[in-house]
Amino acid sequence: MSVVKVIEVLANSTQSWEDAAQTAVTEAAKSLKSIRSVYVKEFQAVEENDQITQYRINAKISFELKDSEGPQT
């Protein structure tokens, strides 16, 4: 039986919301194994001089806990 844990992360990008989501997954993967999915909960943008300068997301990343290794955080 598998157990899945969900963490909430914030990420940003100067390129796009998709790039911000990829950044969230890339950074989470440095310390988490068995990532299963990412759910983008909220989108936000920072505007300066009529231009978007930052794309921000609030995301939930789910990953499987391994029985023999114990919880991953």
Rank of each mutant, 00 (worst) to 15 (best):
E8W: 01
Q72K: 09
W17E: 03
S62T: 15
E42I: 01
D50A: 14
A59K: 00
K33L: 10
G70V: 07
E27N: 12
K33C: 05
F63Y: 15
I52K: 09
I57W: 00
F63N: 01
M1P: 11
E18P: 08
D19E: 14
A11M: 03
D50K: 14
V40Y: 01
S16Q: 06
E18F: 02
A20C: 09
E42W: 03
S62F: 03
V38T: 08
A29N: 15
L10N: 13
K60V: 03
P71E: 13
A59Y: 02
L10E: 15
S68V: 09
P71R: 13
V9R: 03
I7P: 03
A11E: 04
A11C: 06
R56I: 10
V46L: 08
F43M: 06
S34L: 12
E8L: 02
I57A: 00
Q72R: 08
T26H: 11
P71H: 07
A24N: 04
N49I: 04
A45F: 06
S34A: 14
D19H: 07
I35D: 09
V9L: 08
T14G: 03
W17H: 14
L32W: 03
I61M: 04
L65P: 00
Q22V: 07
A59P: 06
V6R: 10
E18S: 12
G70W: 07
A11H: 00
E47L: 10
V25M: 11
Q54K: 13
S13F: 00
A59N: 03
S68T: 14
N49S: 13
V40I: 15
V40Q: 01
T14I: 08
Q72D: 08
I35T: 09
V25K: 01
S2F: 10
Q15H: 05
T23I: 07
A24Y: 00
S13L: 06
E64H: 05
D50S: 14
S68P: 00
N58L: 14
A59H: 03
L65R: 08
F63A: 04
D19Y: 00
I61H: 01
N58P: 05
T26R: 14
A24V: 05
Y39R: 13
V6P: 00
V3K: 12
K66N: 15
K41H: 12
F63S: 02
T73E: 14
Q22T: 09
F63C: 04
A45Y: 07
E48V: 14
V9D: 03
Q72S: 13
A28V: 04
E8Y: 04
T26L: 10
E48N: 11
S34C: 06
A29V: 05
